[in-house]
Amino acid sequence: MAIVLGDNRYGKAEVRVVRVDRSGDTHTLRDLNVSVALSGEFAAVHLTGDNAAVLTTDAQKNTVFAFAREHGVASPEEFGLRLARHFVGSQPAVRRARVTVEEYAWDRVPVTGHSFVRRGGEIRTVRVTHDGSATHVVAGLRGLTVLNSTGSEFRGYVKDAYTTLPETLDRVLATEVHAEWRHLSPTASPEAPWDASFTEVRRLLLETFAGTYSRSLQQTLYAMGRRVLEECPGLGEIRLSMPNRHHFLADLEPFGLDNPGAVFYAADRPYGLIEGTVLRDDAPPAEEAW
């Protein structure tokens, strides 16, 4: 039996960089968390400790800061593309770079041009992979918490010896959307409309969640993904993970009170977890992007 080295990668994780553009009276701010993972011809460092091909993770961190200064941050996608192509193009041993970017949104406080307030728990995400010949961009978001107070039912499901959940014709439907979508033709141009694309996908997800009469969270997930692909031809697939944030009617009978769908308790765990992929059947597959 032979024992061999399998897939491996290394890099710098969670480089926190805040880029402030002070040109003009109104400042702009991009707040990022950047992680780099490089793979390629690194067998020697694992097998013999030979570091000759290793670009230090400290240098990777410094590259993130230097690029933020030299090139700015037009968008998380553009920044990730620029970094990934740099690492593959500048290091002979690197065959593939994966750059993951999280962006934390800040809203302006309108009193001045330089005051901001952090926006909730929602995070914008980007994952760029580049190997010198193929480039993939997967954009997304997580922590998008949504709720419909009506317009949802759940019935007609399998009932076995352990089923206690009653059917309902009117329930609260709440979830925290984690969505990722793959662009078919990514470009590193600072002028590429990455921000507009993200805003449009987010709008479609929210509108479809709100506008779909839901018989199951699975049905809602598919409707959201389908709407995004129908209206965004530059996307090949979208993957969604949506936990069911259960809201149960509080039992008020011991207090002599009725509860006609007015008072609920929100259970944080355990929870149902619904996941699914919606894709174009004519789009080329790219599992390596994920």
Rank of each mutant, 00 (worst) to 15 (best):
A2P: 08
L5D: 12
D7K: 15
D7I: 11
N8D: 14
R9I: 14
K12V: 03
V15E: 15
V18L: 07
V20L: 04
V20K: 15
D21R: 01
R22E: 09
G24P: 02
D25T: 04
D31Y: 09
L32Q: 03
L32H: 02
N33M: 15
F42N: 00
A43C: 09
A43W: 06
H46R: 10
H46I: 11
T48A: 00
N51T: 04
N51V: 04
L55W: 05
L55G: 01
T57Q: 12
A59F: 10
A59H: 11
K61D: 02
V64W: 11
F65S: 11
F65P: 01
F67G: 13
F67V: 11
A68W: 03
G72T: 07
A74G: 08
S75F: 01
P76W: 04
L81T: 03
L81G: 03
R82A: 01
R85V: 03
R85S: 08
G89A: 03
P92Y: 12
R95S: 14
R96N: 06
T100H: 14
T100G: 15
V101Q: 07
E102R: 02
W106N: 11
W106G: 05
D107A: 10
P110F: 06
V111F: 04
H114T: 13
F116A: 05
V117Y: 14
V117N: 11
G120W: 09
G121N: 13
E122V: 13
E122F: 15
V126R: 05
R127D: 09
D131F: 04
L144N: 04
V146A: 11
N148H: 06
N148Q: 11
T150R: 00
V158E: 06
D160N: 07
D160K: 11
A161P: 07
Y162I: 14
Y162N: 12
T163I: 11
E167S: 10
E167L: 13
E167Q: 10
D170Y: 09
R171C: 08
E176T: 15
A179S: 06
E180Q: 11
W181I: 02
W181M: 01
W181K: 04
S185P: 00
P186Y: 07
T187I: 12
A188M: 05
P190A: 06
P193C: 05
P193R: 02
S197I: 15
R202L: 02
L204C: 15
T208D: 07
T208L: 08
F209I: 03
F209H: 05
Y213F: 05
R215A: 03
S216Q: 07
L217T: 01
L217S: 00
Q218P: 02
L221Y: 09
L221K: 06
Y222I: 02
G225F: 12
G225T: 03
E231L: 15
G234K: 13
L235S: 05
E237I: 01
I238L: 08
I238E: 13
R239M: 08
S241R: 14
S241Y: 09
P243E: 05
N244Q: 10
D251N: 08
F255Y: 15
N259Q: 06
G261K: 06
A262V: 14
A262Y: 13
V263E: 06
F264G: 00
A266R: 14
Y271C: 12
Y271A: 13
G272P: 03
G272N: 08
L273R: 12
E275R: 03
E275W: 00
V278G: 01
R280H: 00
R280K: 01
D281N: 14
A283M: 02
A283H: 07
A286N: 10
E287H: 13
A289R: 01
